[in-house]
Write a protein that binds this DNA or RNA. Structure first.
Ligand SMILES: [Mn+2]
Ligand SMILES: [Mn+2]
Ligand SMILES: [Zn+2]
Ligand SMILES: [Zn+2]
Lengths: 137, 137
DNA sequence: TCTGAGTTCTGGACTAAGTCCAAGTTCGGA
DNA sequence: TCCGAACTTGGACTTAGTCCAGAACTCAGA
């Protein structure tokens, strides 16, 4: 009884359109971190005439719903992550590739006296590295 | 015998120009996180005809030398940090303001079995929050 | 099944941040 | 002082993303 991204869009009161279906299908079940343009390319395999604007707007809806995560990495285009359970990321600063870090690492809590009166939502740990491919070149 | 940013540019073999002087002076001694355009505005107070391209290139030189840090925050313009001692950041996701987190927090190390064969350079912790001003509006 | 109001989609224009480059200027070692 | 290498400039360009007016579609209700 796996509920798909598409089912959950419906539950949130969005209309079911061929475009949302295509974007959901492009993301469903994958475990990589795609850019908006990569999502657009995959969605266009299913629905060739889908526009970039619609892909962006659907990605924002899914992010707003908490069904995917939007990852903003250092000067590069954002990437979208269908894995929403708490995890951190390992990033190649040279080519931008991202791996999940699933186990054994928890972000330390922010001491209250450092909070500057701000409401802290979450702490994320980003590991900056260089991948094998980039090291070789 | 405090060595200024400018002195250190000289030590790295760069020529001393009025433009580098102006950028160094714009950054020296401050403890806030300026965007490139803000640095340009401050530098232009000292040297009105300085160009954006030169400010960008000087910021990159200083970053390359390790004399300032380039902070890339979620979809916004990069910010430049003259404080290079290890510290983390607390970011308002709504307006982009950044505070330093100096004490009591260390990023956890990445377990070897999670490294995907990559050479990890550093771990940073980013605290995502909403500042008082943004909460009020 | 049909309708229509409200939702959604489209494509193209637009913006913001940053990069690139050819031409002119300046620095500083000899 | 001289001169080549280093540097700066301003404007064109790129990339990622936003915005919008008009056209198309969805789905609740009759
Ligand atoms: Mn992930
Ligand atoms: Mn800082
Ligand atoms: Zn890489
Ligand atoms: Zn704020």
């Amino acid at each position: 009884m796996h509920t798909s991204l598409l089912d959950r869009l419906r539950l949130h009161g969005y209309r079911l359109t061929a475009q949302r279906r295509a974007v959901a299908e492009a993301l469903d079940g994958i475990n990589v971190h795609l850019t908006a343009d990569e999502v657009h390319a995959r969605a266009a395999d299913i629905l060739p005439e889908i526009s970039r604007a619609t892909v962006y707007s659907t990605l924002h809806e899914l992010t707003e719903m908490g069904e995917i995560l939007e990852l903003g990495i250092e000067g590069r285009s954002k990437r979208y992550d269908p894995t929403t359970s708490p995890h951190n990321h390992l990033v190649c600063d040279s080519c931008g590739v991202i791996h999940d870090v699933q186990h054994g690492v928890a972000a330390p809590e922010l001491p209250l006296n450092e909070a500057h009166g701000m409401a802290v939502r979450r702490a994320e740990v980003v590991y900056h590295a260089t991948c094998g491919t980039c090291l070789a070149s």
